[in-house]
Design a protein around this nucleic acid. Structure first.
Lengths: 234, 234
DNA sequence: CAGTGGTCTAGACCACTAA
DNA sequence: TAGTGGTCTAGACCACTGA
């Protein structure tokens, strides 16, 4: 093998391991040497090799099991990180001029939403519907249901000047998100709001946010069909 | 503050920091103590605190700058990891019986695709079109263009029994992916293949895979509109 | 230019689990 | 039960960069 000429940092170790996998020195499914042996070969501390392998495992490149060792993963890295920024920033990045308009604010109960949020069918919800514009063209419809038992302070907020999304990011940081993404046909109402034809394809993101297994909010974000979500993965 | 009763591991440190952010002991935008001070408070090694903070920074919860210190991030963690598995596994997870059928295999040049792949307009491409079924219902259309200059060995493969996707994962591991995701209306041809009505909404994933800035393949994966992509994020 | 985070080291103990 | 990865420690040097 190569004399491990200048491998010093954990990222060097990562790069060298990636090189060997790409060059099929270690093929998919194959075991690779244990941390101690690699550390000896690369003349570095085991900690350094450990960090390299740990990060490769997080990225899905290798699979690690105690006692069984480390292997090149079978289905490497098919997962991607999509960045879903605040709409404000999304619009600003186009670039376009951002504008926000609240359409609806009401307190109600909704059986279907409550079910999704795992709440009692008659749980009190604050329902907000709003439009986000880019350069005066409708960009996204945000429909939001807030669990008032969990976030009572939402009662005090009009959401006239700040979107529920932005408010929640400030007010209730660090919630866990469940996200679903799918294509749908625009209903008459949605089509009107997005200024497209009824039955046009739209892209929908549905999200429920949780804190400690309690649902805080549910959101349905509708985009025109031509809206593209991008991601890059190493 | 709390006497830092039983904080021993880096994940305890993470949890405690998250707790303090959620409890607004440290509000969004605020600086938090440096690693040495935290290590003293938690009575652990700085390395332990470092790992906790590093992972929180990777997750977007905090922002770190040398000399300037660590702060609670302004727009915390709006990014998600979507897992896009091999179709085979996706179908098996439903669960349904997976079947594959190749529709087209041809060598051609395509200006638009070549442009996307940053190749010469007349670059030779291998074009594969195939259908993935779940329980005999069309599940996904895979259209694939392979850069034959980069992957000449694809000429030898019929893709009759193995999908381009599965073949590529084995043959060309570790490529970088660019992904785009959007909603569209089914063309007559696509509708027929997916056994849906023309103009129905479909979900499209387009992906280009790269190795060292050279495009290897481009893929267009079309799903019925009701197909949902899910993700969870801490 | 001083203080912060970034990383490496060498050694140790532990938890898990496959052989 | 032996071998692997998982983690902690204490100390050190370095790179960056904002006060």
């Amino acid at each position: 093998m190569s004399p491990a000429s200048r491998i010093k940092s954990y990222s060097d170790v990562k790069a060298e391991i990636l090189r060997r996998i790409a060059a099929k020195v270690w093929a998919v499914g194959d075991p690779i040497p244990n941390e101690e042996d690699l550390a000896r070969e690369f003349q570095c501390a085991r900690t350094t090799v450990n960090r390299a392998l740990r990060e490769l495992a997080e990225a899905g490149i290798v699979e690690r099991k105690r006692r069984a060792g480390t292997r090149v993963a079978e289905a490497p890295a098919q997962d991607m990180r999509f960045k879903i920024p605040l709409v404000e920033d999304e619009v600003a990045a186009i670039p376009a001029c951002y504008r926000y308009r609240r359409l609806i604010r009401e307190t109600l109960s909704d059986e279907a939403i409550a079910h999704t949020m795992k709440l009692a069918p008659d749980a009190p919800l604050l329902h907000i519907c709003a439009l986000h514009y880019g350069d005066d063209a409708p960009f996204q419809i945000e429909e939001r249901w807030i669990n008032l038992s969990a976030i009572p302070q939402a009662r005090e907020e009009s959401f006239q000047d700040i979107s529920a999304n932005a408010w929640l990011v400030r007010e209730v940081p660090l919630s866990r998100l469940d996200t679903q993404l799918y294509a749908s046909a625009a209903s008459a109402e949605i089509a009107k709001r997005l200024a497209i034809k009824a039955q046009s394809p739209i892209l929908v993101i549905e999200r429920t946010t949780w804190r400690a297994d309690q649902a805080l909010t549910h959101a349905k974000l509708s985009y025109r069909g031509d809206h593209k979500i991008s991601a890059t993965s190493a």
